Amino acid sequence: MRWKALPAALLLLTAACTPDRPPAAAPGTPAGSPTGSASLTPVADCGTHDLGHRSELPPASLSCLLDAVDQHRPAVLRATRLTIEGDPIRFTYTVRQDGQVEVLTDTREDAFGYRGVMRELCTGPAAGPPVLDFARCSSPTPVR
C-alpha cells in the first residue's frame, strides 16, 4: 500500500525541485527582443494581418502599436503584403521598452527579389506605405 503513494510523493518532490523557467520566446522571435525570455513585461499583441495588395492596417492595430511606442510598452504587430507577382512579404514590428521599433522584413518567399530576413531599428512610426513609415531607421542587417 505504501508503494502506491510513492509516485505522487516523487511527483511533488520533482515539482518542488524544478527551477522556474521564464517563458520561451515566440517562434521566429530573435534573441534579445522584448518577447524573448529576458522580458518580464507582457507583450501586447496588436494583431496579425494579411493585407494582400492593400497598404492599410486596421485602425485598432495601428493605434495599439503607436500607443505602445508612446508608452514604451512591448508590443508586436505582424503584417503580410503581396508583391506584384503575388509573393508574400512578411513584416514583424516589435516595440521595445525603450520605444524603438524592431522591424523584421521577411522576403524569403519572394521569387523575384532578395530572399532573406532583414532587421532594422526604427523610431517615429506613423501610418504609411507599405504598412508603417518611420522618421528614422538603422541600416538593414541580415538576420538569417
Results as ranks from 00 to 15, higher is better:
residue 1 M to S: 14
residue 6 L to E: 07
residue 7 P to H: 10
residue 11 L to M: 13
residue 13 L to G: 09
residue 13 L to C: 12
residue 16 A to G: 12
residue 17 C to R: 06
residue 18 T to K: 00
residue 22 P to K: 01
residue 23 P to Q: 10
residue 24 A to T: 05
residue 24 A to K: 02
residue 24 A to M: 04
residue 24 A to N: 10
residue 26 A to H: 00
residue 29 T to L: 08
residue 30 P to M: 04
residue 35 T to A: 07
residue 36 G to E: 02
residue 37 S to A: 09
residue 39 S to E: 05
residue 39 S to K: 00
residue 40 L to N: 04
residue 41 T to D: 10
residue 44 A to D: 04
residue 47 G to W: 02
residue 47 G to Q: 00
residue 48 T to Q: 04
residue 48 T to Y: 03
residue 51 L to M: 10
residue 53 H to L: 13
residue 55 S to T: 14
residue 56 E to T: 11
residue 57 L to C: 09
residue 58 P to I: 03
residue 60 A to C: 04
residue 61 S to A: 15
residue 62 L to G: 05
residue 62 L to S: 15
residue 65 L to C: 07
residue 71 Q to N: 13
residue 72 H to L: 14
residue 72 H to N: 15
residue 74 P to E: 02
residue 77 L to P: 12
residue 77 L to W: 06
residue 82 L to N: 14
residue 82 L to W: 02
residue 83 T to G: 08
residue 84 I to Y: 11
residue 90 R to Y: 07
residue 93 Y to S: 13
residue 94 T to H: 10
residue 94 T to S: 13
residue 98 D to N: 15
residue 99 G to W: 06
residue 100 Q to V: 04
residue 103 V to F: 03
residue 105 T to E: 15
residue 106 D to K: 10
residue 110 D to V: 13
residue 111 A to E: 06
residue 114 Y to W: 07
residue 115 R to N: 13
residue 117 V to R: 12
residue 120 E to Q: 15
residue 120 E to C: 01
residue 121 L to N: 05
residue 123 T to L: 10
residue 124 G to T: 04
residue 126 A to G: 07
residue 127 A to S: 14
residue 129 P to D: 13
residue 130 P to A: 13
residue 131 V to M: 08
residue 132 L to P: 08
residue 133 D to L: 05
residue 133 D to I: 00
residue 136 R to D: 01
residue 137 C to Q: 03
residue 139 S to R: 15
residue 142 P to N: 00
residue 144 R to D: 14
